[in-house]
């Protein structure tokens, strides 16, 4: 008789249930109508089942986004958990789509579902990848731009996990500043 360990049949639960969203830029529709929920998951195995099934970011058409957010948080500034928040923003050069985009996005997903920021993970709302012709962007959204300790910890761990060289600075910007900016750049509230 073969003894089967629970490891072999019980899925590994995640701390949070997550929702993956897809945004496709169709100018004939409203912004909200272009945003679709793909699926939710709350185990490691179901995360991989979903990830293995969908297109890599680098294969998406320009103007598309993936958003991974905690269940109950919508991937928009207006959500109660986002409206006082902000994001750590990684901007990629055009050349980095081939070299880094998919690797950085997967690393971002692993940071979220694995709760890589310890107790500061509670400040995380989600993450977004924007595929754009002028340069792709990846960001981790947190809930309150005044929570400096949490934000700085998240930024340091995230930068390390992505393998961003120490001399390269990444910035955290509040959604309010991003929404009301006048030029093409938003001022950083924090940098690491």
């Amino acid at each position: 008789q073969e003894i089967v360990s629970p490891e072999d049949y019980i899925k590994h639960p995640l701390q949070n249930r997550w929702a993956l969203w897809f945004f496709k830029n169709d100018k004939s529709k409203t912004w909200q109508a272009n945003l679709r929920l793909i699926s939710k998951f709350d185990t490691v195995e179901d995360f991989w089942a979903l990830y293995n099934h969908i297109q890599l970011s680098s294969n998406l058409m320009s103007g598309c986004d993936y958003c991974l957010f905690k269940d109950g948080i919508e991937p928009m500034w207006e959500d109660e958990r986002n409206k006082r928040g902000g994001r750590w923003l990684i901007t990629l050069s055009k050349q980095q789509r081939r070299a880094d985009l998919d690797r950085f996005w997967l690393e971002t997903l692993l940071c979220l579902v694995g709760e890589a920021f310890d107790d500061h993970s509670d400040d995380v709302c989600g993450a977004v990848v924007n595929v754009r012709a002028k340069g792709d962007k990846i960001s981790i959204w947190t809930t309150d731009f005044e929570n400096k300790d949490a934000i700085v910890h998240i930024g340091q761990v995230y930068k390390d996990r992505l393998g961003v060289p120490p001399k390269v600075i990444i910035g955290y910007q509040s959604h309010t500043d991003t929404a009301t900016k006048s030029g093409s750049t938003t001022k950083n509230k924090f940098v690491v």
């Binding site: 995640l14 701390q15 490691v44 995360f47 694995g114 709760e115 890589a116």
Partner: peptide, 18 residues
């Protein structure tokens, strides 16, 4: 309470298991 934390190696190892 306790937080369920998985490091990247564990998560990546789970990808290839059936």
């Amino acid at each position: 309470g306790t937080r369920i934390i998985y490091d990247r190696k564990f998560l990546l190892d789970c990808r290839s298991s059936p």
